[in-house]
Amino acid sequence: MSDDARQTHAAPAPSGENGAPGGHGPRGPGWVPTWPATVGLVVTLVASVGFAVSFIRDASTQWLGGFLAAALLGIGLALAYWGRDLAGDEVISGPYPVPHEDAEGRAALGDALDQSVQVITRRHFLTKMLVFAGGVFVLSQVVLLGALGPRPKNSLRTTSWRAGSRLVTFDGVPVTRDTLAAGTFLVAFPEGHLDSADSQITLLRIGADPHFKTLAGRESWSPEGYVAYSRVCTHAGCPVAQYEDQAKVLVCPCHQSTFDLMNGAQPVAGPAGRPLPQLPLAIDAQGNLTAQSDFTVPVGPGFWDEG
């Protein structure tokens, strides 16, 4: 190569010497070894596969973290080396050499073009390698979707209440028609589902209070003055734990949503926008309180109409 027409200065970088030990191929100006970039990408490939496999096999977080670190380190190493390859490490100044208009000059130009093509092909290989390794790395992260857990399916719309479920206290004792007197309340659960948080209800005995408004379509839901509302606040899902006996309201201690028990648990104050769902009640032949069915609307905060 004729660099007599150019002033070429090797940059003072530590690896500025053309070619590393063991390197092959043409060593033109700006040549840096590609093998560290290739090794980096291979490390990324192997570590990505290792990450996916150890996630699927439920390996410890140390393995997951190690593989993730190796994959990212590999890609980082490759990009760093490649960036140096693209940038070169020489400083060129002066006019570009014009080859002589003779056979020797043409040959020199041909050599120079060949070298450029080789550099470009090398880059082409590295590009493919980078896309492949990057793709495998991104794909290996798809397994993380598995950590989102089982799909909710219909569980947000249903609770543990079934037609005929008996109402029991937190101790599992069935609630009978004689348990409550007018103006008293208790917290009830479906029998066999004491740990079902979305099924807890406030069971209240209104008695024959003339202020109690039976909503249309709910005429048979409150036998003998018993009414039951979901205890899960429709605002943020807190237990609606405060009962004010004189005002006949349920108040949520989290944000003071207030529900009027005399009028279908409609919200009368606070942030809640929906009434507490009412559970249709019945009394069976043994005098136990039971549910006619599950709630007719979803309990808790309105997940379905959240923008």
Binding site: T169, A181, T184, F185, L186, V187, E244, D245, Q246
Partner: peptide, 13 residues
């Protein structure tokens, strides 16, 4: 006995 807005618990709940 209950107290104001506090309902009676004994004997029921």
């Amino acid at each position: 006995l209950g107290r104001g807005n506090m309902p009676v618990f004994a004997g029921h709940a």
